[in-house]
């Protein structure tokens, strides 16, 4: 393998890992507040289709991204209404959100299948993108990749340094106590769920406007689910989520690596890799059961109903 191939592989790893990073960061915040939203896949698909439609209609990619984010946030509100306000079972509601989002996105996008658009193009950052190898790997991406780094920084900082991070965590660890000290548990949970939805929508927009600028039914291909596993793998830590997202990104582009090494393998068999890797990660986590238990938000998945 020559240096150019390695550069290309690492470049593609970051591109492929970006949607996972976005979804998993959003889900992490949501889970930190004590809400388990299994509807990521549905929200990603809605972000993808709405973003794509908005771009085609307005002819403006920026509008597409905004629409994608809004679509994801709106979908998460639907989840929030059922799971937070109506205290419905979070597992079932999340599944419902995925089934509904898959159906609705297929319905909305039916007439957009096969429509082509000019996708979001790369921004070669001045100066740094000139650096050999590193410039190509890190600084020749589309703006959404840079945005994902900014968002990562914000989430990381939020939970490391800020009162907001503490507030979200307290609501997820012990809602009764949080309520007793005057925090509005439901409000904070709603906001966290909406942040998760917005991030999933953004990831969807990234998929349909930058990664592969087109819309096909079910194009998220399980990324929402992989991201859910990623959050557990990362034991709810932003920096480990980033690492995990890029590892999975690498697993998803193994065909590039194998081609580089001169192997021929069926693309369908290689497509199994990220899913297989997810299962293996879940197996490895078993060795760390106690640690996983300690880092899980205590009230995760438990509905909260304020007395009165």
């Amino acid at each position: 393998m020559d240096i150019e191939l390695i550069t290309n592989i690492l470049f593609a790893t970051i591109r492929t890992g970006t949607p996972l990073l976005l979804i998993a960061l959003g889900e992490m915040v949501c889970e930190k507040s004590g809400v388990l939203n299994l509807g990521q896949e549905g929200m990603v698909l809605m972000g993808a289709v709405v973003g794509f439609m908005a771009s085609v209609i307005t002819g403006n990619l920026g509008m597409g991204i905004i629409a994608a984010v809004l679509a994801g946030a709106l979908m998460s509100l639907l989840f929030g209404f059922l799971a937070i306000s109506l205290v419905a079972n979070q597992v079932a509601t999340g599944l419902a959100l995925t089934i509904f989002g898959t159906g609705l996105s297929a319905f909305l996008g039916a007439s957009y299948v096969g429509v082509g658009i000019e996708g979001i193009t790369a921004w070669h950052l001045p100066l740094v993108s000139e650096i050999p190898v590193i410039g190509k790997i890190f600084f020749s991406h589309d703006p959404l990749v840079y945005l994902s780094w900014v968002l990562f920084g914000l989430v990381y900082w939020c939970f490391k340094r800020t009162r907001l991070g503490l507030t979200i965590r307290s609501v997820g660890e012990n809602p009764e106590a949080a309520n007793a000290i005057g925090l509005s548990v439901l409000q904070i949970r709603y906001l966290a769920v909406m942040f998760g939805g917005a991030m999933a929508g953004l990831a969807g927009g990234y998929l349909s406007l930058a990664y592969t600028p087109l819309w096909t039914e079910g194009m998220s291909a399980g990324r929402g689910w992989i991201a859910l596993a990623l959050v557990v793998f990362a034991s709810w830590k932003a920096e480990r989520i980033m690492l995990g997202a890029y590892l999975f990104g690498a697993a998803s582009i193994m065909h590039l690596v194998l081609q580089g090494l001169g192997f021929e393998a069926s693309p369908n068999l290689l497509a199994m890799l990220p899913y297989g890797a997810t299962i293996i990660v879940l197996m490895v986590l078993a060795n760390d059961a106690i640690k996983a238990k300690l880092s899980t938000p205590l009230a995760l998945g438990q509905p909260y109903r304020p007395q009165l």
Partner: peptide
């Protein structure tokens, strides 16, 4: 579009919950 099927199924589950 035939995908109305999935939409109806999703709505049904949501309303049920």
């Amino acid at each position: 579009p035939k995908s109305l099927t999935g939409l109806f199924q999703g709505m049904l589950l949501f309303y049920l919950l």
